[in-house]
């Protein structure tokens, strides 16, 4: 048995659902193709982020002290919260897929809304963090000043970070370049995902998924989880470098 269509070809000329596209022989074939295609697309996404992870690995080894110092300017509270938020949104998305599979329209709408809300919270927190970087002159290229790493200020109630020498401090710009490139690309994926979520929400409210044609939701779920996975790696790599120091 070599081809997925073979078994279903003979005899099963049962009613085709209206949403089956003409060039597929069976619904199963259509569904499998869609999820396989989605996975291939996710592979391209892995490689897309892969370039930046390579860069990260190299520069982290070269400029470890700068990466530690850069990492310590990030708020661990905000970062952890965001991780939790994103994981939860992944969970609600998974629930959404389940609701769609079991044809629970209400549950689907609630799940999408929750996912959307959590996504917004994530982006909100992210923008707070970005704003903070802007204020602190830690945005590479546009607004960057390494002097805060040469003469670190002590936060009230906290010991000051150890100062960096000027040359190493200047290399924090590499860290922040990667920080913004990686989290920026991630956020861009989130924004695209949220656009799709709104699109799905409208269709769900109209009852477009009640007939069991939920390939779009399932594949969007894959996308959303992928975005989650990227963050799962970004969080320790960017936020958690040598917190004990």
């Amino acid at each position: 048995m070599d081809s997925p269509t073979a078994a279903l070809h003979e005899g099963t000329h049962a009613e085709h659902p209206s949403y089956q596209r003409h060039h597929f022989v069976t619904m199963a074939q259509q569904k499998e193709s869609a999820s396989f295609g989605m996975w291939l697309f996710l592979l391209t996404e892995i490689m897309f982020f892969g370039g930046m992870f390579t860069a990260y690995l190299i520069y982290r080894n070269w400029y470890y002290a700068a990466f530690v110092a850069g990492s310590h300017t990030l708020s661990i509270v905000l970062g952890t919260t965001n991780t939790a938020v994103l994981i939860t949104s992944s969970f609600t998305m998974a629930m959404g897929v389940w609701c769609a599979e079991t044809r629970r329209r209400g549950g689907l709408i609630v799940s999408i809304l929750l996912t959307l809300a959590l996504g917004l919270v994530f982006l909100g927190i992210k923008s707070v963090e970005y704003h903070e970087k802007w204020v602190q002159h830690h945005v590479p290229g546009l607004r960057f000043d390494a002097m805060t790493f040469v003469h670190p200020h002590a936060e009230p109630g906290q010991a000051a970070e150890p100062p960096l020498s000027l040359d190493m401090a200047e290399h924090t710009e590499v860290y922040f370049s990667l920080y913004f490139a990686m989290t920026g690309m991630h956020a861009l994926h989130m924004i695209i995902g949220m656009g799709l979520l709104i699109f799905m929400l409208i269709k769900a409210i109209r009852g477009a998924y009640d007939n069991g044609n939920i390939a779009f939701i399932e594949n969007f779920g894959l996308y959303w989880h992928f975005v989650d996975i990227v963050w799962i790696f970004l969080f320790p790599l960017l936020y958690l470098i040598s917190r004990h120091q």
């Binding site: 070269w62 400029y63 002290a65 020498s165 040359d167 190493m168």
Partner: peptide, 12 residues
């Protein structure tokens, strides 16, 4: 190369 780096990026 080491000497050059030590002048430009001494802290490493």
């Amino acid at each position: 190369e080491y000497l050059r780096q030590a002048i430009l990026n001494p802290s490493a």
